[in-house]
């Protein structure tokens, strides 16, 4: 019934955070804890995935995300192949299923997939050969589960009890797979209060039904928050159809040092990157003492190692 979970509750694929049991999410975060040391020491590899092949299948350009998946796989001793399909055969008219079949003929163990269409990872998992795992590295507006896990992991390192936390996700929630997966993950971990903040043009209409509070005013939205997640505003949204201008967006929704004072004194500030400084976030906040943005990047490595090991059935040493 569940495409991504095995009957005994392990991940066969990771396509979405939706529907994951809390126990499993916590297990993945615990495994990331054990792997963090290795992730940070670049010179040491674990033999957990020796002899396994992982294909990074990116239908949408993304150097940063692809690099962290590549590094994660290499630190686990897997063989990694990078395939930027955006510039390869699919643009020559080959169908997605043909591309998959060709790659499966090379006997790989896992596809790490990024695709511009919501549901693409799910589609690939449905049609992949048995025994080939799919790890969703971002599909359209739908999900970016490893980003949500690494953000949850980062929060947990600073503030271990989610029940006590007020978390505000600020910006373009409508087009954001990161926001969708985060809201799910934080909900599963029992977050005390979840808020989304942004203009109505950038919020999905039925978002309240997901159990979040909606704020169209950033100042009420971040007041008393323990965690603020600033979302990236994509350039094409700024050209007038969703927002009047970058400048107006920063004035209404940008996170400045002054505004940050409304949050709790120990509030942490996160951003999935890449940032638009001066559009959604002021440089002094991005580089300031509350920012954990660079820590997110290094945690991303540990979390992706944990997910890959779990899916491919390797035992992470405690």
């Amino acid at each position: 019934m569940s495409l991504q979970l095995t009957p005994d509750g392990r991940l066969r694929h990771l396509l979405t955070i939706d529907g994951l049991p809390r126990r499993l999410v916590e297990e993945l975060l615990d495994a990331a804890d054990s792997l963090r040391g290795v992730a940070l020491r670049g010179n040491k590899k674990l033999p957990l995935l020796r002899g396994r092949t992982i294909i990074n299948l990116f239908f949408e350009a993304s150097t940063r995300t692809r690099t962290t998946f590549e590094l994660a796989a290499e630190r686990l001793s897997a063989d990694v192949v990078n395939l930027d399909v955006a510039s390869s055969s699919t643009s020559k008219g080959e169908s997605l299923l043909d591309t998959l079949a060709t790659l499966e003929a090379m006997h790989c163990d896992m596809f790490v997939v990024r695709h511009p269409d919501s549901g693409a990872a799910h589609f690939i998992a449905e049609h992949a050969a048995p025994g080939t795992a799919v790890l969703n590295a971002g599909d359209g507006r739908h999900a970016h589960p490893t980003q949500a896990l690494l953000d949850a992991y980062t929060i947990r390192r600073h503030k271990p009890r989610f029940e006590d936390l007020t978390i505000a996700v600020v910006g373009d929630v409508l087009h954001s797979r990161v926001a969708r997966s985060e809201l799910r993950a934080f909900g599963i971990l029992g977050a005390g209060e979840l808020r989304v903040v942004g203009p109505r043009t950038l919020l999905p209409p039925a978002i309240e039904e997901l159990g979040v509070q909606v704020h169209t005013d950033i100042e009420s939205g971040i007041t008393g928050a323990d965690v603020i997640v600033m979302l990236r505003l994509q350039r094409e949204r700024m050209r007038g159809a969703f927002l009047p201008s970058e400048g107006e967006y920063f004035r209404r929704y940008g996170l400045s040092a002054e505004r940050l004072k409304l949050a709790k004194p120990d509030c942490i500030v996160m951003h999935p990157g890449p940032m638009n400084r001066g559009v959604e976030i002021a440089s002094e906040v991005a580089d300031g003492p509350r920012s954990v943005i660079l820590e997110q990047v290094s945690n991303g490595l540990a979390v992706r190692m944990a997910v890959m090991s779990h899916i491919l059935g390797a035992q992470v040493p405690a």
Partner: peptide, 15 residues
């Protein structure tokens, strides 16, 4: 349909 399911699944909605 632009509603709960489209919001959840990140599907472009038709109001």
């Amino acid at each position: 349909h632009e509603g709960r399911v489209a919001a959840l699944q990140g599907l472009p909605g038709i109001p």
